[in-house]
Nucleic acid binder design. Structure first.
Lengths: 207, 207
DNA sequence: CCGGTCGGAGAACAGTTGTTTACTGAATGG
DNA sequence: CCATTCAGTAAACAACTGTTCTCCGACCGG
């Protein structure tokens, strides 16, 4: 079938990316439901009609942004959790992974935090699907650890969900942090919370 | 000073409430930043100009809605946590309290969940302030329990924050639940999570 | 009873919105 | 080389937006 990218499709992709970038920039200070189609095309240097060559509407663009933000993260948390080292080390590394990703692409994560419970249904569902997928990945990684011996699947999913929700909360808190010192405070608290969860996990099957 | 409400101020309050109610209804399917002033007044049976007699703009109305949603909850969680009974009982009761409140006023909680990270700054800040206040209340309640002996203030706040964030997440999950059976599943998972946290708490000072 | 207060109505303002229609011109692939 | 595909343009559409100004008339305190 089609092999080389072709000048045409390359240009199309460039325009599409310009739309996504323009939208993401504008979304830093507002939410998707209040973002206008014309506003986006204006900031992308394109006419409003060109928008429809790439997306059905703003909701579709939102879903594409979800993919762009979260798609690259798959497997990473699982990999970190699967690494060797004691639990303390592992949780330190996962918190750091989040912090680094949030610092690297703040706009993407702000978008996710904002639209996770936002007013645009399809986008909410797309985010929920990604979060579910992460939970499954974390559950699979956690299941292989020796500390998880004797755990049934519902409990494993509960624990994984706790981890994932915690990561999302941490990302959100990092974005709301005012300065570097507040960011460090957020990271410190996040680590303490994870430690407490890990402690509870160690004694889950005691009683 | 002024004693009787007066026919005038009573009518004013009724209109104000009509605006708040209309807004809350419309906010079920969209977010505040996409909510139009005219849309609200139309649904409230009032002319657009009348809006300005009550609020500076939509942001101010949003802040008022935050107060309406969260103002009545102060002291309640603290009271539940201060009640007698073992920790298992107490956390069961607090999860139930949340579930009951969410079921009683779903629209309010949906609004809070949606705007907590939404696009309207003043509303975000109002919610953050309320959440901070709750955290302080919970920390104060938790501090009086015998299980908290030897805990310093940062750790207490960390634990209280964990509880509060968990409550918000639970409320959110309940709203997203499809049916009654899914709601029960959410409540069950929430209880298990709380139990794990309580376990970690019990062994916090072990090492 | 009466003059002032003030919640609400009505009309008009200039902008902006999403979407449709018809069209242009360059890359495409046989 | 030539007919076709198709990303992007241009213009027009009716509908809506927030805000300002002027005015009305019912409640108010004295």
């Amino acid at each position: 079938m089609s092999h080389t990218p072709g000048v045409r499709q390359a240009q199309k992709l460039r325009t599409r990316q310009a739309l996504l970038d323009a939208a993401l920039t504008l979304l830093e200070h507002q939410s998707l439901s209040s973002l206008g189609l014309r506003e986006v095309t204006r900031n992308a240097g394109v006419t409003p009609t060109a928008f429809y060559r790439h997306f059905d509407g703003m909701a579709a663009l939102g879903v594409a942004l979800v993919e762009e933000a979260l798609g690259s993260l798959h497997g990473m948390i699982g990999a970190v959790l699967a690494d060797t080292g004691d639990s303390e080390e592992r949780l330190d590394r996962s918190v750091e992974l989040i912090a680094r990703h949030v610092a690297a692409r703040p706009a993407h994560f702000r978008f996710i935090a904002r639209e996770q419970h936002g007013g645009v249904g399809p986008v909410r569902e797309a985010i929920a699907a990604q979060v579910r997928a992460f939970t499954e990945e974390v559950a699979a990684a956690v299941a292989t650890e020796p500390e998880s011996a004797g755990w049934d699947r519902p409990d494993l999913l509960m624990l994984a969900g706790l981890y994932v929700d915690h990561m999302v909360l941490t990302a959100s808190a990092l974005l709301d942090a005012a300065g570097p010192e507040e960011e460090r405070e957020v990271v410190r608290t996040a680590r303490r919370r994870l430690r407490l969860v890990t402690l509870g996990r160690a004694h889950w099957l005691d009683g």
